[in-house]
Design a protein around this nucleic acid. Sequence first.
DNA 1: GCATTCATTTGCGTATGCATTATGTGCGGC
DNA 2: GCCGCACATAATGCATACGCAAATGAATGC
Lengths: 270, 270
Amino acid sequence: MARLPGRPGTRAHEPIPPLPARARQPRASRAAGGQHAVQGATSSEWAADADRPATAANLAYARLKALILDNALAPGSQRLESELAAELGLSRTPVREAMVRLEQDGLVTITPRHGMRVTAVTPADMREIYEVLNSLEPAAAELLTRRGLAAKQLAPLADACTAMERALHKEDRHAWAAADEVFHLGLAELCGNRRLAGMIMQVWDQSHRARMFTLHQRPLPERSTAEHRAVLQAVMAGDSESAREMYRLHRRRSGEELIALIERSGVAWL
Amino acid sequence: MARLPGRPGTRAHEPIPPLPARARQPRASRAAGGQHAVQGATSSEWAADADRPATAANLAYARLKALILDNALAPGSQRLESELAAELGLSRTPVREAMVRLEQDGLVTITPRHGMRVTAVTPADMREIYEVLNSLEPAAAELLTRRGLAAKQLAPLADACTAMERALHKEDRHAWAAADEVFHLGLAELCGNRRLAGMIMQVWDQSHRARMFTLHQRPLPERSTAEHRAVLQAVMAGDSESAREMYRLHRRRSGEELIALIERSGVAWL
DNA sequence: GCATTCATTTGCGTATGCATTATGTGCGGC
DNA sequence: GCCGCACATAATGCATACGCAAATGAATGC
C-alpha cells in the first residue's frame, strides 16, 4: 500500500489551481495533420467536450474534468458544490450541472450532503474497463476497416503511429502516451459509429489516470508501438478480420500488463 | 413512408398524461422470483433508475424517460423547459437537470432556444446500436459464464426464458417483449461488470421504441425464444465460448431481422 | 467517562428573478 | 413580389433566496 496517490475518505482542501488557457481548446482536431501536432495532446486539451457554447456550465464541466483527469483533484477527494462554485468564480447552478454530467461520465459520485467525490479507480475497476475496451475496440477496428476509408482519411492514425515511434526513440513516455491516446480515440472516432466511439472515450477517460500512473513504471512500450502499426496496416489493407484480431490481442495484452503493473505496485486505487 | 409514429420537426403540443403510480417502482427486482413477475415488466417500470432519493429532479427524470420510452412523447417533438416544468408541476430547475441527464442517455437533444427534442432513431441509428450490442452482449454472456454462478442466481434468466416460452404459446407479443427485456438486461446485470451492464442498458433504452414498433409486424419470435434458452443452457453448463458465440449469433440475426423490418416498413425514424 | 439526545449549523434541493441573446416578425426598400 | 434589416419577444442560463433535513457539537443523564 505504498505511495497512495490519493486518500479516499478524507476531505481534501487543496485549492483549485487555475487552468492554463489551452484547457478550453476543442478536442485535438484531426485537421491539424502535422506529425508534431500529436505530441501536444495532453488530457486537459481534449477534456473540453465538442464545441459546446461557451456557457458557464460547460466551462465548469471542462475545467473540473480536466482537473480530475490531470489528477489535480485527487481521487477520493470530496468537494462541496459551494466550494467549487467559489473556487471557479461561479454560482452553484452551473457547477451543479457540471457535477451531474461528470457523475454520468463515471468520474465522480455525488453524495447528497458531502458534495462530489472523485471516483477512485480500483484494480477491479480497471478490469471492468479493459473488459469493455476488449470488446468495443476490436469492434471499432473491424468497422473502420469495413468503411474502406482512403489513406488520407486514415492520416491521423498514421501520424499517431509515427509519433509513437518517434517518442519511443526519444524515450519520451509522455509523448508516447499522448500519441497512444490519439490513436485509440482517433480509431474510435473514425469507425463511423458515434455511440461506440462515445463509449470507448468514456471508459478511456475513466482509466486515464491509471495509464498515466503506470507510464513511468513500465518498460518502454516497444511492443505496443509495433502492434499499433500492425493494426493500422491491417486496416489499410482492408482486412477487417485481421484488424479486429490484432486489436483484440493488443488490447488484451496491454490491458493485462497494465493491471498487473497496478496490482504489483500495490496501490489500491487511482 | 407510411404510418410515421412521430413527425420530427414539428412542435408537439400534446399534454403530458399523468403517469400511473407504478412508474416510480424500482427496476424490476430479481428477488421477486415468480414466473409471472416477469410479465408485468413494461418500460415505465424500470425507467425509474436505481433507488435514488425521491427528489423532484429524479422524479422529472423518471417521468420524462418513461414518457419517451412509452412513445408518449413523440420522437422529434420538442418541449420547452418551462412547458415541461408547468406540466410536471415543478420549477424549471429540476426539469433542467432531468433534461441534462436524458441528453447524456442519448434520448433527447437539448437545443439552446428550442428546449429538448426527443431523439428520433433512424435505421442508421439502429445499425449503430446493434453493432454496439453485437459487441457488448456476447462479452457479457462470456463474463457471466465465467462467473460460474449457482443456478439459483441465474433464476431470473431461467424465469425470463420460461416467460418467453409461455408468451409464445399464448401469442402474447407484449409479454414476450417484456420477458426478452428481462432476459437481456438481467444477463447484463448479472455479468458482474457494471460498466458493461450500464452501456448495454443505455443502448437498449435507445432502441426500445424501435423494438416495440416492430413487435406486431414480425412473425412470432420462435427462433429468438429458442436461442435465449440455448444461451442460458450454455451459461449454466459453464461453456463460456459457446455462450458467447450463441449470443453473438442471436444478436446478429435478431438485429438484422429488426433492421430489415424497419427498413422494409418504410419508416424513417422511431 | 461514556452514551444519548437536542439544538445549531450547514449544505442541498428547489423556486424565482434577471439579464442575455437568439428568433421570429413586420416593415421598408429594391 | 421578394429580400434584408431592425426590433420586439421570449426562452434560456445563471445568480440568488429560502426552507428542509442531515450532520455536528454540546450538554445532560447514567
